[in-house]
């Protein structure tokens, strides 16, 4: 990596401990970084730890029963070391988040305008009237028709897609330097998904905001991200520039994921290949490759503790003992 990144997550581990139950490790040493203005994808199946990673970065995990270690450096300061109120001052202003479910992520009893102005009022010196004006402006920017009237309405009066636009407006309100979008389109109708994704990426690119895009959908990544991190069982298993990842995936899991995506340009009749098994059949990383039980290429060599990320170039690394052919082979 060149110089200091905007966001630098290193060896992040999150464990949940609930009374009467064994502790579960949701994030098991995730490292990735995001440069200013860059759009980085975090991809993986549900349960791989991507949402928890984002909540940990934002400091939004419940305090009780959660232990977090590692470091999350944002612009040089370790967010994990900040006090709750210091962190709250940065949330919404320096880094913001767009959530998965627009139907439940807005407060049903407050007007949309109010939910926008309260971020502005918390982090800027705008007075009530100015904040209101800015809120209407923001609603217009995210493509909500008749924003002045809509500002006085309540969430239930809007469709899911419109609500997600409002959540995007809220995230962008204070021009943060980083936005974390957690499955921002998953809960929407397929026809709306593309529109909302387009809007999000356009706004982010225009304003030069960096974004972490969390998704299980490689299709979403393909059109938006500069770089992609593939997560499996709480660790990054492959990290690569977008083009390289799609052209020459090295980790067998990434390969599997790509094979499971339907492609329009594939010849008719090409079968899809689902990744067999589920995330629940996994090894502890301390024992061997967590993906080994589902991997067609796994052998005894895969059962070594803590396999490291490696690759011919630092920009493209994979955590695999038997990686798919080198880029040369593919080319």
């Amino acid at each position: 990596m060149t110089g200091v990144s905007l966001l630098d997550v290193e060896d992040l581990r999150v464990r949940f401990q609930r009374k009467g139950q064994p502790a579960t490790t949701a994030v098991d040493g995730v490292s990735f970084s995001v440069d200013a203005g860059e759009v980085v994808g975090l991809v993986g199946e549900s349960g791989c730890g991507k949402s928890v990673t984002s909540l940990a970065v934002m400091g939004l995990l419940p305090r009780r029963g959660t232990s977090i270690s590692g470091s999350v450096r944002f612009d040089g300061t370790d967010l994990l070391a900040l006090s709750p109120s210091e962190l709250a001052r940065r949330r919404g202003r320096d880094l913001a988040m767009v959530f998965q479910d627009p139907m439940t992520s807005l407060n049903p009893v407050l007007t949309l305008g109010r939910q926008l102005t309260e971020v502005l009022r918390a982090h800027t010196d705008l007075d009530r009237a100015a904040a209101k004006k800015e809120a209407v402006e923001l609603l217009g920017r995210v493509g909500i028709p008749d924003p002045r009237r809509r500002a006085g309405e309540f969430p239930h009066q809007l469709s899911g897609g419109m609500r997600q636009r409002v959540l995007i407006a809220i995230a962008l309100a204070c021009s943060p330097r980083l936005i974390i979008a957690d499955e921002p389109t998953t809960a929407l109708d397929v026809t709306i998904q593309a529109q909302v994704l387009d809007l999000l990426t356009t706004l982010v690119r225009e304003s030069g905001t960096a974004m972490v895009l969390i998704t299980h959908d490689l299709g979403v990544v393909a059109g938006t991200c500069d770089r992609v991190n593939v997560l499996y069982a709480g660790r990054v298993v492959e990290s690569a520039p977008r083009g390289e990842l799609f052209a020459a995936p090295r980790h067998r899991y990434t390969q599997g994921l790509l094979a499971a995506v339907p492609r329009v340009d594939a010849p008719e009749g090409t079968p899809l290949h689902p990744v067999r098994g589920s995330v629940n059949d996994r090894l502890a990383w301390e024992v061997g490759c967590a993906f080994a039980p589902r991997c067609a290429h796994a052998d005894a060599a895969c059962r070594v503790p803590d396999i490291a990320l490696s690759g011919p170039r630092p920009e493209h690394t994979a955590r695999c003992v038997h990686p798919a052919g080198t880029p040369l082979e593919v080319a």
């Binding site: 109120s85 949330r91 807005l106 049903p108």
Partner: peptide, 28 residues
Amino acid sequence: DDHVRTAEAKGLSRAVISRRHVLRNALL
């Protein structure tokens, strides 16, 4: 509820979240 997490993500103060986003909804 998810919307309380949204309020937290906005960086609002604890007091504002309690009053405006938790108590108000809970009183219904």
